[in-house]
Design a protein around this nucleic acid. Structure first.
Length: 398
DNA sequence: GAATGCGGGCCCT
DNA sequence: AGGGCCCGCATTC
């Protein structure tokens, strides 16, 4: 199967050989080489058909980490751990932040958490979030294989990610914890008290109108590649990188997309065959109808965003108009008491006629990019004026 | 609470 | 048989 893929493998191996890496093995081989001369530094963003041999001492390798959002997949082989890529969570509105960055959130690994995540709104424009599935491996998600053998940990990746990089795990975690911390912060705040009262009474979160810029969340909108620029040193350390007490990976740059290199993904639009929805047996490919946000979905004419979860429903059309657009710009979800407020008209003009304009304005000021990229903000969505669970805090770690 | 690992089970090719 | 996916459970962080 995957003839083309095999070719790629050959190329990769060839390339790897040029780098002196021993790749004449396959993760499924009965015996893996033990005469390894060179082990690799941990690769945070393995992509394409690559193989690596890590030291069994490498903490990241031990934990089978990856900055891609990989979930465990049962391959009925306890010796080989298989993980498949979940893709990336993007804004259904395809919005951009003030400085032109796109929203690339990390899909939650846990199924439940992911469903929950998809009910949230874009932190930037409060539009619906959309899970962009990975289909870089012959229409299926890219898979990573891990196998512990002797003093080495063998890693093999199959497929090339056809989507942007999500936040790293640590970035996502940091975002969550910061959010929590801020919720917990100043518990005596009358405003917060009130919010909590409301919560306890209604069981629901008040809308952002009720708590403008009170809660905030860091760089959800900042693509990992730019994360550091905004968070400076301490937060740059949030990437997995080579932090097994090792020096920076010597071959990292330009090898497998490990640093700065243009991502290997490219929008391969969804015309590709999509793996048919799995049938009942496997369980309900959870219909992740997108609720409140800016995606009116129960009004009949507007369809639910094809948020795929496992069963990949229809292919994604990353930039296809009817997609996010339909959901977010037409009709506010009046029917909802709204966990999220309706989005501003798209694209939002400066400052945006967001219902919570003042709050948004406030955020805007906070957000003001350090390097006067302000100017280009005009075409981008007003800042998280409405998002419920995710809002910005430009300087979360300061 | 979320991430992870594991294993059972089902479907499709 | 192999690959893919879902689900539940247990453990860890």
């Amino acid at each position: 199967m995957l003839k083309g893929a095999d070719d790629v493998v050959l190329e990769q191996e060839d390339s790897a050989f040029r780098h002196g890496e021993m790749t004449s093995w396959d993760i499924n081989d009965i015996k893996l080489p033990q005469d390894v001369r060179q082990i690799d530094w941990f690769q945070e963003w393995p992509d394409s058909y690559v193989k690596h041999i890590y030291s069994s001492e490498d903490k990241n390798a031990q934990r089978h980490h990856s900055s891609w959002a990989m979930r465990n997949t049962n391959n009925h082989n306890s010796r080989i751990l298989k993980k498949s890529c979940l893709g990336v969570v993007v804004c259904g509105n395809d919005c951009s932040t003030l400085d032109g960055k796109k929203i690339y959130l990390r899909p939650a690994i846990c199924d439940k958490a992911r469903q929950k995540q998809q009910r949230k709104c874009c932190p930037n424009c409060s539009g619906p979030l959309r899970l962009l599935s990975c289909r870089g491996h012959g229409g299926y998600p890219v898979t990573n294989f891990w196998r512990h053998e002797g003093q080495f940990i063998f890693f093999q990746s199959k497929g090339a990610h056809d989507h942007p990089r999500p936040e790293t795990k640590l970035e996502a975690e940091a975002r969550r914890s910061i959010q929590k911390a801020q919720m917990a912060f100043s518990p005596s705040s009358p405003r917060l008290k009130r919010i909590r009262e409301i919560e306890s009474l209604t069981g629901a979160m008040p809308t952002r109108e009720a708590l403008p810029s009170l809660l905030s969340e860091p760089d959800a909108s900042i693509p990992p590649a730019h994360f550091g620029r905004h968070l400076s040193k301490n937060s740059q350390e949030l990437t997995l990188g080579s932090r097994s007490g090792q020096p920076p990976y010597p071959r990292a740059c330009g090898e497998d997309g490990g640093c700065g290199e243009a991502p290997t993904w490219s929008r391969i639009p969804a015309l590709r065959r999509t793996p048919g929805p799995r049938r009942p047996g496997g369980g309900p490919a959870v219909p992740t109808a997108h609720p409140p946000c800016a995606a009116p979905s129960r009004t009949g004419t507007q369809h639910v965003l094809p948020v795929t979860e496992g069963g990949h429903d229809d292919g994604f059309r990353p930039n296809a108009g009817p997609l996010g657009d339909d959901s977010c710009e037409e009709k506010p979800p009046l029917a909802y008491s709204g966990r999220c407020l309706p989005p501003p008209p798209y694209p939002a003009p400066q400052g945006g006629p967001c219902p919570t304009a003042s709050g948004a304005h406030h955020l805007r000021q906070l957000w003001a990019p350090p390097e006067g990229s302000e100017g280009d903000g005009g075409r981008h969505m007003g800042l998280g004026c409405c998002s419920d669970d995710m809002v910005f805090n430009p300087y979360p770690l300061r």
